[in-house]
């Protein structure tokens, strides 16, 4: 009962091999079968938008990628080779960073302290604050972050967009290869959304694989290179963004199919 994926082979233009790939992943919680034979790929230098309605399995898929959830079946490939993933640390070791929706920053610490939280640099047993400050500043500058006044500002004093920026900068600080962003623009205003989307684009331009989990079609059409739509735990489509329009993506999200794209009726019927 594999979902038939149309529009796959003829449209894929990139010569690149996927950086990270999941093949035929299944995941159940008790009797609830959340992910059905999900194939998912992240390409270097591209923004892959992961879209889907509430309950489509986006969060579960992200947590499987992040190593928080195990897989019931299916393969986890990194740079084409199967890897053994046993928990978030293994995934971080591969250079995959997740920026969660609720940001996971400590308000009482400053930007530098947050960016190095859990991975502080030390000289002997003493924290090497100067090097950390230097590197935090370099990272923010290399992302062309223009909005933060001082890297010694406490995170509590930052706006939503700035906090998102710090969370993303924290993820790229460690020369990561892949960054997963969970609803990065959900709570932001227009100007701040702009900043974050620009930043997302710059990450991809630096050669990182970026996964953007979002509800917002404008974000998808603006910044994503590929769209992977989930529908009730199945991949409804995995297409280059230029081949779909707003209406098609919405149909893929809400009905699982749009024209010749998406899950065939007989497959959908068995869900």
């Amino acid at each position: 009962m594999t979902a038939e994926l149309s529009a796959e082979a003829p449209y894929r233009p990139e010569p690149l091999a996927p950086l990270l790939e999941l093949r035929g992943v299944n995941k159940s919680f008790g009797v609830v079968h959340v992910l059905h034979d999900v194939d998912f790929a992240v390409y270097p230098g591209q923004v892959t938008a992961l879209v889907g309605d509430n309950g489509a399995g986006k969060s579960t898929l992200v947590k499987v990628i992040a190593g928080i959830y195990g897989r019931d079946s299916g393969d986890y490939l990194f740079e084409g080779a199967p890897v053994h993933v046993n928990g978030p640390r293994d995934v971080a070791g591969l250079g995959v960073e997740v920026v969660y929706q609720d940001l996971a920053l400590c308000d009482n610490l400053d930007i530098v302290q947050n960016m190095f939280l859990g991975r502080e640099l030390r000289k002997g047993i003493v924290l090497d604050d100067m090097t950390m400050e230097d590197r935090a500043r370099e990272t923010l500058a290399s992302l062309s972050v223009r909005t933060v006044k001082s890297v010694r500002q406490s995170v509590a004093s930052l706006s939503g967009g700035q906090r998102q920026t710090v969370a993303i900068a924290k993820a790229v600080l460690w020369n990561s290869r892949i960054v997963l962003l969970d609803e990065p623009t959900a709570a932001l205003g227009v100007a701040q959304t702009r900043q974050v989307l620009d930043l997302v684009r710059r990450l991809a331009d630096r050669g990182l694989g970026v996964v953007l989990i979002t509800h917002n079609m404008n974000d998808v059409l603006e910044v994503a290179d590929r769209v992977t739509a989930l529908y009730l735990g199945r991949v409804a489509a995995d297409v280059p963004t230029e081949n779909v329009n707003h209406k098609q993506i919405v149909e893929l999200i809400t009905a699982g199919r749009s024209g010749d794209l998406g899950i065939r009726d007989d497959a959908a019927a068995t869900i």
């Binding site: 996971a104 400590c106 308000d107 009482n108 302290q113 939280l117 859990g118």
Partner: peptide, 19 residues
């Protein structure tokens, strides 16, 4: 010490940071 402040500021963030 840094981790202690982190736990007090946001225990969930500290946990996700591997503390």
């Amino acid at each position: 010490g840094r981790h202690l402040y982190a736990v007090g500021g946001n225990a969930e963030a500290a946990r996700r940071a591997g503390i």
